[in-house]
């Protein structure tokens, strides 16, 4: 022992309990709590669609159309009524949730993966890589997103896979920019310099010292990104270049419903409400996560 031990002044400091902290803050934030509950219900609905759906979403039922060939109003055998093709709206909504969530999660997951990898590379190594990446993101971000998607899908042909790829192709740039900026400032922090001068390998610095600091931001932006991806998917389907028919998708249901708006308003309202609630819930949950994890603020002490 070479020096007097300092009085252990913080022996009683509570260890960090992220989950308990999250739960407490959730109880204080009612809109966020409702959003999380809504998202859990939505995920369950999508997952259990085959069990929950009262009817086959793709099948045209004879009793699903009135004698005049009009959609059946909500109630009776069809809780949310039927569409002009005599299909059950509730069942289509449930299956549509599957489509929306799948595309939202996959498109955004892919975008996140690419965006984080590119952002870290550009931010940490700088130089020519950074210049090239920054110009690409500039170019992509200056396109009108929807128009760009429509054009691409028209070329590649509409399919779930292509919708995912096209959305990812656009969204990675947003995350790459944010991550790049964060890495640029992290790289200059003294603890990173200290680790580098210790002789630690670059790969280890990136994974052990840079990435952990980005995780909160990635979680937040990924959550918000799901909402945007779902909106894009719905818009594409609404425009008829999204998920191909007869597969149920909320955007395409809205498109179908808008022609019968006066006669059968439920056709517009049912998918519309689902879409709004889902996007709102993702956004509110993202905001709550942002406050909780606070990726832009200095380290919490």
């Amino acid at each position: 022992m070479t020096a007097p031990i300092e009085v252990p002044g913080l022996e009683t400091a509570p260890p960090r309990r992220p989950l308990r902290q999250a739960w407490r803050s959730l109880l204080r934030d009612i809109p966020a709590l409702i959003s999380i509950v809504a998202l859990i219900l939505l995920a369950l609905a999508a997952l259990l669609a085959p069990v929950l759906a009262p009817h086959d979403p793709l099948r045209t039922y004879a009793e699903g159309l009135t004698d005049q060939g009009a959609p059946v109003a909500p109630g009776g055998g069809f809780p949310l009524g039927t569409d002009p093709n005599g299909r059950d709206v509730l069942s289509r909504l449930l299956y549509g949730a599957r489509v929306s969530l799948t595309i939202g999660v996959f498109a955004n997951g892919l975008a996140t993966l690419v965006g984080v990898a590119v952002g870290i590379t550009a931010g940490y190594f700088g130089g020519r890589v950074d210049t090239v990446v920054s110009r690409i993101t500039d170019v992509v971000m200056s396109f009108p997103i929807l128009l760009f998607c429509v054009a691409l899908i028209t070329v590649t042909g509409p399919s779930q896979r292509n919708v995912v790829l096209v959305i990812a192709l656009i969204y990675w740039t947003y995350l790459a920019r944010i991550i790049r900026g964060m890495v640029l400032s992290l790289r200059e922090r003294e603890f990173v310099t200290a680790t580098r001068t210790l002789g630690v390998s670059t790969v280890r610095i990136l994974f052990r010292h840079i990435l952990p600091h980005l995780v909160p931001a990635i979680i937040v932006y990924a959550t918000l990104g799901v909402a945007s991806s779902i909106l894009i998917e719905s818009s594409l389907s609404f425009l008829g270049v999204g998920v191909p028919v007869p597969e149920a998708s909320w955007g395409q249901m809205i498109d179908d419903g808008r022609k019968y708006y006066e006669a059968a308003p439920w056709l517009l309202f049912a998918p519309g409400v689902c879409l709004i609630v889902t996007v709102l819930a993702f956004n509110l949950a993202g905001d709550w996560l942002r406050d909780l994890l606070d990726p832009t603020a200095p380290e919490r002490r």
Partner: peptide, 22 residues
């Protein structure tokens, strides 16, 4: 000549003289 220990954390309750530990 150094003073052992660290200055007390603000807010830490103590009885007696705050400097007694050091």
């Amino acid at each position: 000549p150094s003073i052992p220990g660290t200055p007390p954390q603000p807010g830490r309750a103590h009885t007696g003289c705050a400097f007694a530990d050091r």
